[in-house]
Simulated scan of single mutants.
Amino acid sequence: MSSTPKTIQIFLPGGDPRGVRIAEITTRIVQVIEVPRTLLTDFLAMEQSSQVGVYVLVGEEAGDDDRRVYVGQSGDLRARLAQHHQKKDFWQRALVLISRTNSLTQTHALFLEWYVLKQLRQAGRFSDENGNAGSRPHTPPPLEADCMEIFETGSTLFSTLGYPLFDPLVAVTEAENPAEHFFCHSPGTGVDGKGLYTAEGFVVLAGSLGRLANAPSIGEANERWRQQLIEANVMRPEGEAKVVFNKDHLFSSPSASAMALLGRRANGWIEWKNADGVTLDELKRSNLGEDA
């Protein structure tokens, strides 16, 4: 995604920031419309719903640990989304990408559907309900260039609305830099976690080992939460005492990530340390506000 400065406008047609939101970069023709399922009828009454477009249905019924999507395209968004409303249960919001000038063609939409799904799977943040991804559609080079520009704009707008579908959890520069790594160890329980502190939260890296059992003090709610991580295949039991992280996973805080590994309440700012044994708190929090 381009890091150049941008001006993004978000229009609230109903005046409610929790309702339908229309995002656009002011100098470009692409729009992304976020539609709560409860307000689908409102969107279907808008002229934008009659256009050619690409859409992503988003479901988060189990919270951030089981975020699912479905990617599609249609020359008649109104009919297709109404059909999904009747037949697909998992989703709560639709993200619809269209052109302000109504200039997307079916060829654009077919290529973008394929490319969106490919990039979404590569990022690995969301699991998809699409099944077979299909083959790359034939697209003339000029039209493909248009699609790549549309995708770049759409990606920025998705992220602005709170859906970083195509952004990797960990930048390559962070993953390959040992200075950015933090570790959570508990020799008596076999916990051996590795992670990164990012702008979004704390990422526990794939292959990290945690404790399967829960300490009594963890509480019922947190015990259920750890079980959800297992059911969502974020971490899997290995043997009788351990869990292993199947993939990189973002937690909202260092403490949540430490609790997932340790099976007990934990202060992640203290539990996570760099290779020299310096805590995350000392490196990232305690020195804030100190004179350089």
Rank of each mutant, 00 (worst) to 15 (best):
K247Q: 15
D248Q: 06
E238Y: 10
C184D: 09
E231Q: 15
M235E: 07
G154D: 00
A258V: 07
Q228H: 11
A221N: 13
A199Q: 14
G193A: 10
N222K: 14
W225T: 13
A232D: 07
M259R: 07
F245H: 12
G190V: 09
A213Y: 13
Y197N: 05
E238R: 13
V203S: 05
D192L: 06
W269N: 01
S159T: 14
R264C: 06
S217H: 11
V170C: 03
T198Y: 07
S208Y: 04
L212E: 09
E180I: 04
L196I: 14
P164R: 01
N214H: 11
V234L: 00
P187G: 12
T153I: 03
A221M: 08
N177C: 13
M235P: 09
I270S: 08
G193S: 11
A260Y: 05
S186C: 07
T160M: 06
L212W: 11
L169N: 01
F251M: 06
P237N: 05
E271L: 09
M259C: 09
P178V: 09
T156L: 09
K273P: 10
K194T: 01
F151P: 04
A199W: 03
A221D: 11
H181P: 12
N233Y: 11
K273R: 13
N177T: 13
S217D: 14
R226L: 01
H249Y: 10
G207W: 03
N233H: 15
D192M: 00
V203H: 11
S252W: 05
A206R: 14
E223L: 15
L205S: 07
F182G: 01
R264Q: 12
R236Q: 13
S253R: 01
D192A: 00
G190M: 06
G210S: 11
D248L: 00
R264V: 00
A175K: 11
I230A: 09
F158P: 06
P187E: 00
V243Q: 05
E176L: 06
A232I: 11
R224W: 13
K194A: 02
F151G: 01
A175R: 10
N233S: 15
Y197G: 00
